[in-house]
Simulated assay, not measured.
Amino acid sequence: MKVMVIQGPNLNMLGVREQQIYGPMKLEQIHAQMKDFAGQNNVEIEFFQSNFEGEIVDKIQECYGEIDGIIINPAAYTHTSIAIRDAISAVAIPTVEVHISNIHRREEFRKENMIAPVCTSSIVGFGPFGYHLAQVGLFQVLQEVKAVQEAQAQQQAAQAE
C-alpha cells in the first residue's frame, strides 16, 4: 500500500506561526511520526508540501494509478479551491482531509469547506494527532477496499471455471 500526504500553504511554517492555534510541532516532526506509524503497518508513505494551488493539483493528479490513498491538509485552500476539489474527485482515490484546528469554531470564512464533500472523511481539531487519526482511518478504508477487490477477483475466477 502506498499513501501520499499532501500539505497546503503555510504548513511549512508549523512550529513558528500562531502556536496558540497550531501548536509547537514542526511539519518535519509530524511527518517523522507518520513515517514511523506507516512503517509499523507496512505502508509506503510519501510527503509533499506546497504553497501553490497548481502544484497541489498536479500532485493529486500524479497519484492516479500510483497511490492507494491520500491524506491532505489543503490549509487555506480548503475554503477557496474548486481546482483541488475537482482533482480529488477526478482521481477517485480514498482521501482523508485533515485540519489541525477546528475550522468550524474559527472565523466565518473558514466554515466554508470546498474539499470535504469529495473526501472519504475529515479529521478536524485534534492538533497534530489528527494526522495519526487520518492514517488509522485511511489504512482501515484501504484494507476494506483490498478485501472487496480480492473477493471480486475470487468470484470472477470461480465463474470462469
Rank of each mutant, 00 (worst) to 15 (best):
G54V: 09
G54Y: 02
I56W: 06
V57E: 01
D58L: 14
D58C: 11
D58N: 11
K59F: 15
I60L: 10
I60N: 05
I60M: 09
I60P: 11
E62V: 13
C63V: 09
Y64Q: 15
Y64V: 08
G65Y: 09
I67C: 11
I67F: 13
I67Q: 06
D68C: 12
D68Y: 10
D68Q: 11
G69R: 04
I70L: 06
I71M: 09
P74F: 00
P74G: 03
A75G: 12
A76W: 02
A76L: 11
Y77T: 07
Y77V: 07
Y77Q: 11
T78I: 02
H79N: 15
T80V: 10
T80F: 03
T80M: 04
S81E: 03
S81V: 02
S81Y: 00
I82R: 07
I82Y: 15
A83L: 09
R85G: 03
D86I: 13
D86H: 06
D86W: 08
A87E: 09
A87C: 14
A87T: 10
A87M: 14
S89C: 11
S89M: 09
A90S: 15
A90C: 10
V91P: 10
V91Q: 05
V91W: 13
I93V: 15
I93Q: 07
P94M: 08
P94H: 09
T95Y: 01
V96Y: 00
V96E: 01
E97A: 00
E97V: 00
V98F: 01
H99K: 11
I100Y: 01
I100G: 05
S101P: 15
N102R: 12
N102M: 12
N102K: 10
N102Q: 10
I103K: 12
I103S: 11
H104P: 03
R105S: 15
R106K: 12
R106M: 12
R106F: 14
E107P: 08
E107K: 06
E107N: 13
E107D: 13
E108V: 14
E108D: 15
K111D: 04
K111H: 13
N113V: 05
N113C: 08
N113W: 01
N113I: 00
M114Q: 06
I115L: 02
P117I: 06
P117S: 07
P117Y: 11
P117C: 01
V118Q: 08
V118A: 02
C119W: 00
C119F: 07
T120L: 07
